[in-house]
Design a protein around this nucleic acid. Structure first.
Lengths: 211, 211
DNA sequence: GGTTCCCTTGACTGGACGGTCAAGGCAGTA
DNA sequence: TACTGCCTTGACCGTCCAGTCAAGGGAACC
């Protein structure tokens, strides 16, 4: 009977407990994305899982903390995938293209997460935590961009704004996928996103004179 | 005592009434954007305005209808500004550039609206109405894009995906402005957005060979 | 069998929130 | 003054919801 027994503090969980926890995260992610965070009650979540309400608060200190964790772990996962994808590439421009494509593919596979990130960005309470992750992502992307600029491969520009532009394109095009048939092939949209972003980074041709 | 007296039905309003209504929209837009739509109660809004609760329901049938109206009128205003801006321009590529810049400038001047649009996109109840407006915007942009493609000014591409990419960049960069000092000059960010978008539309140079 | 500790239950609480309504003020008009 | 219709009030209602808690099941270990 102490703060040591407080819920969130990484409580020792058995395999069964870990599984239950994972299950709650999964169901909640789906429901939050589908109906919205606020309109989805904790009662909705536990009912969808098929357990009593106390179970929720055994694993999470609050509804808010659950969303925060979903966002944090999601961003972490995407970053890891993106880093692995560009690990063996030397050319910075190729790194960018590969990173953008991988990031977009990950988003297409985790559309619920994209929805939640976009929601969280609109509420100060969550956006602060989000910014930390986004700043890291921007910093990740800034390194190859700086190199490419220094090598004269791409025009001088603010790497941070470039990185955020890329995030804007991929997130928004992914959002258009969300309303499409989830079984349809996202490849054309991903290709379009990569092409657009690379065009934006490499810069417009000096002049495309009228016909 | 009939549906003819129902609140939303454009009730005959005096000048004073119009002003009150405008005031509610303005205050609610600010509060919704700052604290989130759901966390902001109708009581919060009327308190900020300094009136009783009944006033709210005199002008609006529900909290939801108010947000829907804010979104609708905002999108309509942006479209009008954008259309006026490109009215006298003949060249389709120049039209695109001017339209993007004007749209971004409008967003920078109406950051609260951008926040609300981004929120609304994450909740089905509002996103449906939003899609209608976004489809119109995409169609507006598609016309000059088609012409430019037909004239060989820009590479073959899906105009719809190009338009949505542009929206993604401008919205997201605008969001980064939201957390910046509201008095700082947004011009550099707007310039970066326009440059990135034009690069994405005009297409990457065929090859920028390594140094 | 006894003990411990992880996990589960579901009724309950206190508060908040969207929306209603009967009543009254106030401006313009005659 | 009397009347009409726009506007305002704020207490009130029914509902919902995040979070609590006392109690119990059950697996693992002694």
């Amino acid at each position: 009977m102490e703060t040591s027994d407080a819920p969130t503090e990484d409580r020792r969980l058995t395999a069964r407990g870990e599984e239950r926890r994972r299950q709650i995260v999964e169901v909640a992610t789906r429901l939050f994305a589908k109906d919205g965070y606020h309109p989805t009650s904790v009662a909705d979540v536990v009912e969808a899982v098929g357990v009593g309400k106390g179970v929720f608060y055994w694993y999470f200190p609050s509804k808010e903390a659950l969303l925060a964790e979903i966002l944090r772990s999601g961003q972490k996962a995407r970053r890891r995938v993106q880093r692995d994808a560009i690990a063996g590439i030397a050319d910075p421009v190729e790194q960018m293209e590969r990173g953008i494509r991988t990031g977009m593919e990950w988003m297409a596979d985790h559309r619920d997460l994209v929805t939640l990130v976009r929601f969280a960005a609109t509420e100060e309470r969550f956006s602060e935590g989000l910014r930390k992750g986004e700043d890291i992502a921007a910093a990740d992307a800034a390194a190859p961009l700086r190199r490419a600029i220094d090598e004269g491969r791409i025009p001088e520009a603010d790497p941070d704004l470039l990185a955020r532009s890329v995030v804007g394109v991929t997130q928004h095009l992914c959002a258009s996928l969300i309303h499409a048939d989830p079984d349809s092939d996202p490849t054309p949209v991903i290709d379009a996103a990569v092409r657009f972003c690379m065009g934006g980074i490499l810069g417009a041709p000096a002049a495309t004179t009228p016909a």
